[in-house]
């Protein structure tokens, strides 16, 4: 990378002029290696912000493929990406290389599961959270605390969002804030409860700022949990204490990395479909699920089975929590669609 005061060929002159960054800060940004986990609404905002800021190496991790319903908020993707059914990691890298061909983009089409998490965050300085479910964040938290790697938590649904910097060895981790993920079936997801693009923009951009602060190292990272409710313009912050008894950062037990996969995914021969079965069986009220999903697509239910038609594919949910995901290209995508519509648990 170049040592020119304005970054490479003056490309970053406007942020170098900002006193918080300066030429030395820009040099550190150019040398930084950052992983973005999840490339949905939050993740595309984050990847976009970090790439344009000149982060030298960006690892872009997502298991999913671009769909039309993503375009309302996932700002790196186009109709052509959706038509081609490109993996999000590839589509994001293709867009960002057009923005800056001088940074290294490393797309990874992969699930961020317990088996792969540690490998996926190897050799980076910082991880930024663009995931869409808590289950994955607990895996991410374990992997980062284990590797003593800072990460920035961020989440958004409806008009709400929250974010926190997690710096192992210094401050609290995700499990100090929330010892266990709550039961999944009642949690709103972006598919069922909706999401506004300004909230993912705001939370994603705050994550970018915190990432830049951590990389540059001159400003202290924010020490609070920041929550935003956008429709009512409510911003609130609270201090989170580190819990000495925390199983993760206190006792260094990484339970989410050791967990068996939360779902069994079986390919169904002769069709583009996978059965996804949660390890713990549920007893679902399909009529209730039908109401919850009515905003996501065309939905109907019998006493045994709920059918959701969305983005040209059919997803079927059964009373014990299993689902048959039609039109999925891979196990990872099937799992991703399951999580999106039927909730992580």
């Amino acid at each position: 990378m170049s040592g020119a005061p304005g970054g490479r060929e003056g490309r970053h002159s406007r942020q170098v002029a900002f006193s918080g960054i300066g030429p030395e800060g820009q040099r550190k940004i150019a040398e930084a290696r950052v992983a973005v986990v999840g490339l949905g609404a939050l993740g595309t905002v984050i990847a976009n912000g970090l790439a344009r800021s000149g982060v030298g190496y960006l690892r872009l991790i997502d298991r999913d493929y671009v769909e039309l319903s993503n375009l309302q908020r996932q700002l790196l993707y186009t109709e052509a990406d959706a038509r081609e059914g490109l993996p999000k990691a590839e589509a994001a890298a293709r867009r960002l290389v057009e923005v800056d061909s001088g940074i290294e983009l490393d797309p990874r089409v992969s699930d961020f599961g317990p088996d792969r998490a540690e490998e996926l965050i190897r050799d980076v300085d910082l991880v930024v959270d663009g995931t869409d479910n808590l289950e994955t964040r607990f895996i991410l938290n374990d992997a980062c605390v284990k590797a003593k790697l800072p990460w920035i938590y961020g989440g958004a649904v409806m008009d709400h969002g929250a974010t926190m910097d997690i710096i192992p060895g210094e401050g609290p981790c995700l499990r100090c804030l929330m010892p266990e993920p709550p039961e999944g079936q009642d949690l709103p997801t972006c598919a069922s409860a909706g999401v506004l693009n300004p909230i993912t923009g705001i939370i994603g951009n705050i994550e970018v700022v915190e990432a830049l602060k951590l990389i540059v190292g001159t400003e202290r990272p924010r020490k609070t949990y920041l929550a935003v409710s956008l429709w009512s313009t409510d911003f609130s912050e609270c201090e989170v204490e580190r819990d000495p008894a925390c199983p993760c950062c206190g006792q260094r037990r990484f339970e989410f990395l050791e967990r068996a996969p939360s779902h069994a995914v079986v390919s169904l021969c002769g069709r583009d479909a996978f059965q996804v079965m949660p390890q713990s069986t549920r007893d679902m009220d399909l009529a209730l699920a039908c109401q919850r999903l009515s905003a996501a697509g065309k939905v109907r239910a019998t006493s045994f089975m709920l059918t959701l038609e969305v983005d040209g594919r059919e997803l079927r949910l059964f009373r014990d929590g299993r689902a048959i995901i039609g039109g999925a290209k891979s196990r990872d995508q099937a799992l991703s669609l399951y999580t999106e519509y039927f909730g992580a648990d």
Binding site: R316, F318, R319, D320
Partner: peptide
Amino acid sequence: CAELAAILDGS
């Protein structure tokens, strides 16, 4: 048939 099998098992 995969739906039938899922219902037979689950319900």
